[in-house]
Amino acid sequence: MPDVNSLKLKSQSPKKVNSAVRRLLSELQLPEKNIQFLKYKKPDHFRPESDNCHFNVLVMCNYHGGGVIHGWIISQDTKNDFIEAQFHAVWSHPDGTLVDITPRKDGEKRLMFVLDELRQIELSDHEGTPAIISYDNVRIHRGITISGLQRIKIVPQSSFIYDHGLAIAK
């Protein structure tokens, strides 16, 4: 089996539920009914950062109320028989509508999102810098789990949290 890191993956959000998606849902212990297809919508009052969904949604809540909804983005490369789930946050509008406000580096505008009411982030710190405890990507290649469900610490790499009042610079 080739090393998945050596593959040139072209993962995109699946357009429908298939056997690989079901296998991934089983790994996450989440029901198929939790799947929603969401479109990206750029916020009006700030510029969100890609790969910073949890803090983007907290900023959105500061501007417009609503709440943070945790779940997973599903991406698949059918050619390489690869699928993964990335822990993600979307904004819940005060009317209950879910909105993805985090731009994707690949420019994809629609995603398969799986609501996860079992897991959420925790605010933390790393050597005096704000951080979050989240989940690493769950990856399956050729039907074999190569990266299972595990907690990780994420330390923001930009000034975004300071620029939007989520942390105070020392």
Rank of each mutant, 00 (worst) to 15 (best):
N34Q: 11
D106W: 09
S158Y: 12
H70L: 07
V138E: 11
L58E: 05
S159A: 05
C61Q: 09
V17Y: 06
R22P: 02
L28Y: 14
L118S: 08
F113Y: 15
R151F: 01
I101H: 04
F87W: 07
V90T: 02
Q36I: 00
R119M: 08
I74R: 14
G165I: 09
A89P: 10
N62M: 06
P43I: 03
V99W: 01
V59A: 01
R47L: 10
H126Y: 10
P156R: 14
F160Y: 12
K170M: 06
H164D: 00
H93F: 13
L58S: 03
R119Q: 03
Q76Y: 10
K109F: 10
H141W: 08
T102S: 13
G66L: 03
R47H: 12
P14R: 14
S92D: 03
L111I: 15
P103I: 01
P2N: 11
M60N: 10
V59C: 02
K39G: 10
I83F: 01
S159K: 14
S6H: 15
I101A: 01
L58A: 11
K109D: 08
D44F: 09
I152N: 15
D100P: 04
Q120E: 05
F37W: 13
R119P: 09
D106R: 05
H54N: 12
L123H: 15
A167V: 10
K41S: 12
Q29Y: 09
I69L: 06
G71L: 01
S6I: 13
S92W: 11
D106K: 09
P2H: 11
I73L: 13
G165F: 15
K42A: 00
L58F: 11
P31V: 07
R22C: 10
K109R: 12
Q12I: 04
I144H: 11
L28F: 13
H45D: 11
K39W: 04
G71Q: 06
G107K: 08
M1W: 10
E127I: 06
D163I: 01
P94D: 05
G143K: 12
L166P: 01
R23M: 13
M60S: 12
E127R: 04
T145Y: 02
F160L: 00
F87R: 01
T129C: 14
R22E: 09
R47K: 15
N137A: 15
D95F: 01
E127W: 07
D100L: 10
E27I: 02
A167L: 03
G66T: 03
K8I: 07
D106C: 05
L38F: 07
L38K: 02
P94Q: 09
F160W: 10
E49R: 10
K39M: 12
R22I: 06
R110N: 06
G71K: 00
R22L: 11
S75G: 08
G165Y: 15
K105E: 14
G96F: 00
I83A: 07
K153I: 04
Q12N: 02
K79G: 08
H45E: 13
S124M: 00
N52V: 01
I121P: 02
D77Q: 06
N52W: 09
T97L: 04
K16F: 08
D163E: 13
N5E: 04
S147L: 09
I168N: 12
T129K: 14
K170G: 03
R23P: 02
E27N: 00
